[in-house]
């Protein structure tokens, strides 16, 4: 590689100019449905491994947005019918942002009132989503009190009759949690 090419490659790595280009997106409606499955949780800091039953519902919101609701049941020794089992339900709604392919979080409570100005440095999380050929990606970004950042990335990719799921929680560049799972489309 010539010096010029090497410098060019390094400049691209350093960033600052090149951002991801447009890609062909899958149809949002392809994702609509209910999915049930299982996921493995790995916390890199503690080496902890958990198994979860997962239940995901993806549906329309208004004309162009989508609602994502998921329930996690953390199993105890592979069972969900024993004491100690944990169940968590979450929901998030996204709408296209100014007609772009960027989806931003919408709040039902704020549908009829002006959205408060977001202040990431004051701790407000920034949440958005995108669709591309690799799946539906949901991002949650927050600046922590000490100035470090936390980035959570959820990817749900349509495969055959279901979804492949990956999740990463990164704090200041270090991956602290990773989840891999699979869910089948339910009738």
């Amino acid at each position: 590689m010539t010096h010029f090419c090497r410098r060019l490659a390094l400049a691209a790595l350093l960033c600052l100019t090149t951002l991801p280009g447009p890609v062909s997106a899958q149809s949002l409606t392809d994702y609509f449905g209910a999915f049930v499955g299982r996921a493995e949780v790995r916390d890199t800091g503690e080496g902890l491994v958990e198994t979860r039953d997962i239940d995901i519902e993806i549906g329309p919101f208004r004309r162009t947005g989508f609602r994502l609701r998921w329930t996690n049941v953390t199993l105890v020794d592979g069972r969900r019918d024993v004491p100690g089992v944990k169940r968590r339900v979450n929901e998030v709604i996204f709408e296209p942002h100014d007609g772009s392919r960027l989806f931003v979080e919408a709040s039902v409570a704020n549908l009829f009132q002006r959205q408060e100005e977001m202040s990431p440095l004051a701790g407000d999380p920034v949440r958005w989503a995108k669709l591309d050929e690799n799946g539906m990606h949901v991002f949650s970004f927050a600046i922590l009190e000490d100035g470090q950042y936390e980035l959570q990335t959820y990817t749900r990719q349509l495969v055959d009759d279901g979804l492949e799921l990956t999740f990463e929680r990164v704090v200041d560049g270090e991956v602290l949690r990773r989840i891999d799972g699979w869910a089948v489309r339910a009738d």
């Binding site: 991801p20 392919r101 958005w128 950042y149």
Partner: peptide, 14 residues
């Protein structure tokens, strides 16, 4: 530096 682009992609520099 975090920059989110119109297609939802983003760049995070550290």
């Amino acid at each position: 530096r975090l920059q989110i682009v119109a297609d939802g992609g983003f760049e995070l520099l550290h």
